[in-house]
Structures are given as C-alpha cells and as structure tokens.
C-alpha cells in the first residue's frame, strides 16, 4: 500500500476534506482509510515534488487561518472553514486557486470513487445497461 503523502498535515487535511465534502464527517475509520488510500495510490506515480507542493498548500491553508482568525484551520467552525476556502478559490493568485483545485480533486476522488458512496448517491451504471434497468423495472 502506498504511503499517504499528506500524513504530516493529516489533521488539517481532514478538516479541509470535511469542508469540501461535508458528508465526510460521517466516515468511519475504515472510510477515512479508504479515502486516504485512494489518494495515496493516485499520487504514488507522481513525483515527490507534487507531494511537497500539496503538503505546502495544506500548510498555507492553516497559516492563512492563523493569520486571519488567530486559530488553526482545524479549530475554525464549519462556516469559517468554508469562507476560508472560498477566499482561496476566488483568490487573485492563480497558484492558490490551482492548489485548492488540485486538493479538492483528490478529495472528490477519494470520496466519490468509492463504490459504496456511488451507490449511496444513486449512481447505478452497470455493464448490463438497459438489461439491468428493465430487469429491475426501473
């Protein structure tokens, strides 16, 4: 199993993840492990430089929270966290916008690529296509 490259910034990463996908707060230990395993596998073939950039971006999110709120990102309430990430998303600095885009993409992958989550949101695509639908009377 690949190492999770965001382990050194683990708490802040999870706080960002639950801001990006609020339902992630309901993940149990196995769910979080699966989310992080998916991300780790996706990043395993990427250069170490990318891993460093991601860790740096997570730290920047935390530094910005300390600077603006005098609190760590993990200690902000959900609304404050959302506002913080929205500011980054609309930043005039492309690097910041790109950083959030990259991190949210990984979080979406870790969450929505899980078959259990796909079933939960009602995604029903099957290789059997119409046969499966007609057989199920959908």
């Amino acid at each position: 199993m690949a190492t999770f490259p965001l382990e050194p910034v683990h708490d802040t990463f999870r706080a960002i993840a639950t801001t990006v996908v609020p339902e992630a707060v309901a993940l149990d230990r196995a769910g979080w492990e699966r989310l992080e395993e998916i991300i780790a596998e996706a990043l395993a073939s990427r250069p170490e430089r990318i891993h460093r950039q991601l860790r740096l971006f997570v730290r920047i999110v935390d530094w910005r929270a300390r600077w603006r709120h005098r609190e760590r990102f993990v200690d902000l309430d959900p609304l404050q966290r959302t506002r913080e990430l929205e500011r980054i998303e609309r930043s005039r600095w492309l690097l910041l916008r790109r950083g959030l885009w990259g991190l949210r993409t990984l979080i979406f992958m870790g969450y929505y690529a899980q078959p259990a989550i796909q079933r939960e949101i009602g995604y029903r695509a099957r290789p059997e296509g119409w046969d499966a639908v007609r057989g199920a009377g959908r």
Partner: peptide, 18 residues
Amino acid sequence: YFPFVTAKNMAGFGREHS
C-alpha cells in the same frame, strides 16, 4: 460522467456541491 469526474468538473465545494 461518473461520480468522481462529475464532482471534479463542477465548480465549488461544500453543501451545495454535495
């Protein structure tokens, strides 16, 4: 598209996205 690709391609995040 599939759930991850759809999620990635929508703008934003958080409650409305979810």
